[in-house]
Amino acid sequence: MLNEFRDFILKGNVLDLAVAVIIGAAFATITTSLTEDVIMPIVSAIFGAPDFSTMFLLLGSPPADYAGTMTDYAALKEAGVPMLGWGQFLTVVINFVILAFIIFMIVRYATRVMKKSEAEAEAVDTGPSEIDLLIEIRDSLKK
């Protein structure tokens, strides 16, 4: 059983998947930083809010023992106040769109490179195959 597990883990597809997950996680942090540190400050400047991810709409009142400010998103969320965190949601959606677009561009480029290398391989291999040559030799010997 351990040998089967070792063989399974050492297959190329599993290792490729593990590498892809690790690189994807690192890449996600880059796009999160791009969204939070570059794009969202620009969007926040347009809307006039210093931190767009803290934009929210209260749906209920805070508990009686809540002593914090009514504009602190994190404190209200921690206190369990029902609210609609639309700014944070919008930040996550923008982050997803950026990540999806970058992945699309990578896949598109990889597809073009693979098609180009396939076309080059076909262009180089325009002569007769070994089987064709052997058939031709056989037919010549028969004559």
Rank of each mutant, 00 (worst) to 15 (best):
L2W: 15
N3L: 11
N3W: 09
E4Q: 12
E4F: 08
D7S: 09
F8S: 07
I9G: 03
I9Q: 08
L10A: 10
K11R: 08
K11T: 12
L15Q: 15
L17W: 12
V19C: 07
G24D: 09
I30D: 01
T31Y: 01
D37I: 00
V43H: 04
A45D: 14
A45L: 13
P50T: 10
S53D: 07
T54E: 12
F56Y: 09
L57C: 02
L57G: 00
L58T: 05
G60H: 02
G60V: 01
S61A: 09
Y66H: 02
G68W: 02
T69S: 13
T71S: 09
Y73G: 00
Y73T: 04
A74I: 14
A74R: 14
K77F: 07
G80C: 05
L84E: 00
W86D: 02
G87E: 05
F89V: 09
N95K: 06
A100M: 07
F101G: 10
F101P: 00
I102K: 02
I102S: 06
F104C: 07
F104H: 11
I106V: 11
I106M: 08
I106E: 03
V107T: 08
A110R: 13
A110G: 03
R112L: 14
R112K: 12
V113H: 04
K115L: 15
K115P: 01
K115W: 09
K116S: 12
S117G: 01
E118N: 10
V124L: 14
D125K: 15
S129D: 09
L133G: 08
L134W: 15
I137H: 14
I137A: 15
D139A: 10
K142Y: 12
K143Y: 06
